[in-house]
């Protein structure tokens, strides 16, 4: 075993000893770090889910053309032909009014009400799916189609798509701010925890320096300690967020079933969890590094 490896081994043993020497203090520190990390992590998970939800509705804008009752199948074919000549149209689907009524009855649980109707109030429709979710393109198609004969009404869904998009973008900005703020909080918490550790080992550090310990040697056990605190805090945060999601999912399931959806909030995947733990460990490491450096500066 090389001298370097032995140093690391000693440092690790020291770290474990320190973490277990004051279990309550360690637990409280880890809990604080975990809570601080759980907030941005939770916000991130919700945002990812919101994006999935939005994507599931449609990542492609749709334009619906509602037709006059008197439109014949020739009229319909001619409208479809003209639409086909427009660029950016990915797909077209003719929805006969009978189908529309049937769908409505099924998805909104209105069969009782609809069964009581003497005639079908819905018009025939053509649903045009566009390439991508391009609000300008949707605008253009809806203007053009609005001029076609036998088209009484055009409806685009790009408006609410745009609103949702803006909302998600706002959410992302808030998330970044939250993340930065709470990362700083985590660094501050480890900085302080390590500073207290340094105070209790002040004599050992001083003597070690006087008998030839390098700065790296002094740093190492504290870096491990800070990294461990960050990592354990990260695990707590993952636990909190998973627990929170499980709780929320019972309500989400109820809500989703009202919309005839199977939607559930997804937890983070393994790669995301790994990245997150690495990040929290690094933050702890950084807080510790700054703390020991500040101490070494002050005694020099």
């Amino acid at each position: 075993m090389s001298a370097w490896l032995r140093h690391h081994f000693h440092s690790w043993r020291g770290t474990i000893a320190r973490l277990t020497a004051t279990p309550i203090g360690t637990a409280l520190n880890v809990a604080v770090i975990g809570a601080a990390l759980a907030l941005p992590l939770g916000a991130y998970v919700l945002l990812v889910n919101l994006q999935t939800l939005a994507g599931g509705f449609s990542s492609q804008a749709q334009v619906s053309l509602f037709l006059d009752r008197s439109a014949s199948s020739d009229d319909i074919r001619s409208i479809e032909d003209r639409l086909r000549r427009e660029s950016g149209v990915a797909q077209m689907r003719f929805v006969p009014r009978a189908t529309a009524l049937h769908d409505l009855a099924r998805s909104a649980n209105l069969s009782g009400v609809i069964g009581a109707l003497r005639e079908n109030p819905l018009p025939d429709a053509i649903v045009v799916t566009l390439d991508g979710n391009n609000a300008a393109l949707a605008e253009h198609i809806s203007q053009t189609a609005g001029g076609f004969a036998k088209v009484t009404h055009v409806q685009t869904d790009s408006g609410w798509m745009r609103r949702l998009d803006a909302l998600i973008r706002l959410g992302r900005t808030v998330l970044v701010l939250l993340g930065v703020l709470l990362s700083l909080a985590l660094i501050a918490v480890t900085f302080n925890t390590i500073r207290l550790q340094i105070l209790t080992q002040h004599d050992e550090i001083e003597v070690s320096r006087l008998i030839g310990a390098t700065d790296a040697y002094i740093h190492r056990p504290f870096l491990y300690l800070g990294g461990m605190l960050g990592l354990l805090g990260g695990l707590i945060a993952l636990g909190l967020v998973s627990g929170g999601l499980a709780l929320m999912n019972t309500d989400v399931a109820t809500l989703a079933s009202l919309y005839g959806s199977q939607f559930r909030l997804d937890s983070l995947g393994a790669p995301d969890c790994g990245t997150f733990l690495l990040f929290s460990g690094l933050l702890g490491w950084l807080g510790s590094y700054l703390s020991v450096s500040a101490h070494l500066q002050s005694v020099d």
Partner: peptide
């Protein structure tokens, strides 16, 4: 080798461990 006026011994460990410290610093087995 330094002998300090105020000793600078570590009282949280044994006599033996005090003498071990300089050797741990240089990474001896």
């Amino acid at each position: 080798g330094l002998v300090f006026q105020d000793h600078k011994l570590l009282y949280d460990r044994s006599v033996f461990d005090n003498v071990m410290l300089p050797l741990q610093v240089i990474g001896l087995t």
